[in-house]
Simulated assay, not measured.
Amino acid sequence: MRIPLVFSIILMFTFTSCKNDTQEKTKKTPTKELKENKLEFKNKAHELVYQMTQKVGNYSKLIAKKDVVYTYTYQTPDGKTDISTEKYIFNGELSYGKYETHERTLANLEGTIEQGYDGSEYWLKHNGNLVTDSVALKRVAFNRPTNYYWFTMMQKLLDPGLHYEYIKEQTIGETIYDVVKVTFETKDNKPKDIYQLYINKDTKLVDQFLFTVMDFGKADPLLMEMTYETIDGLLIPTQRRYKASNWDAEVTNNPWILVKWTDIKFNNGLSKADFKK
């Protein structure tokens, strides 16, 4: 994929480290069951997002699973790959990743790396030994909440503090979409990321969405396409690919970056001790 170095770094961080404000997004989700049956819709766009969450399985249904373990595979067009075993506890948003292959994430560290977030602290181990390097730990502070957020994104689109705007109806191929813009509240003047969802009018699912990476100065969108799989009563977007686009969801001719979630298992009996360094 022939892209400038800066943009290559942006694309790499989008999934393996992603955005600073992802941490802010994940912290705001309540751990108790959402009273979604009492929601008062802000507008049509909010209602469409709600209908989508009911189709895939809302946050209450997700946290009822207690925890998840799965294999995360990320591959760029140059063939470099990350493969990690991911573990999350939904109550408290605890996150752990064990990388046997990490050609994109902390590639300078040979051997196995483990990343964790125990609810209050981020930590890193290399071949079983704690790493205290501040630069490496900053990468962990990106990866852990980012990977968690992407896995739970469809449910978290009903988080408090989100703004919804109905953009238009758009036909792509033979599919008609309701296009919805989602933005995030901010307490400062920093630009926040935009998510533009393409909600299939027939299935109520988000087949694809546009997103920005403002923390890296990337205001032009990337397009994410997804394929869902039913797992334990939830619809999970397990097959993903993304690349540069425009706001009409017209992509470039560049190759796709590929992401797969496999071997997904809920209710594994994980405890907080499993996330301690």
Rank of each mutant, 00 (worst) to 15 (best):
I199P: 03
N91C: 01
G92H: 10
V140L: 12
Y164I: 09
F151A: 03
G111T: 10
K138S: 09
K168Y: 07
Y198P: 04
N143F: 04
K187C: 06
S60M: 00
H102Y: 11
Y148T: 08
Y164M: 12
T71A: 08
Y74P: 07
Y96T: 03
A107T: 10
G119V: 04
N108M: 08
T76A: 13
G97A: 15
K156I: 12
V68P: 05
T73P: 13
Q115M: 11
D118S: 06
E169N: 15
L158P: 05
I199K: 04
Y149I: 00
K87Y: 14
H163I: 04
Q155S: 09
G173E: 07
A107F: 15
K87I: 02
K87M: 10
D118H: 11
Y117W: 14
K61F: 04
P191T: 01
K187W: 07
N108G: 06
N143G: 13
I63V: 11
K87H: 13
S84C: 11
Y149Q: 03
T132G: 03
L162Y: 08
R139K: 13
K156S: 05
Y72N: 15
Y74F: 15
T73N: 10
K187H: 06
E165T: 09
D78G: 10
D178I: 08
D188E: 10
E110S: 14
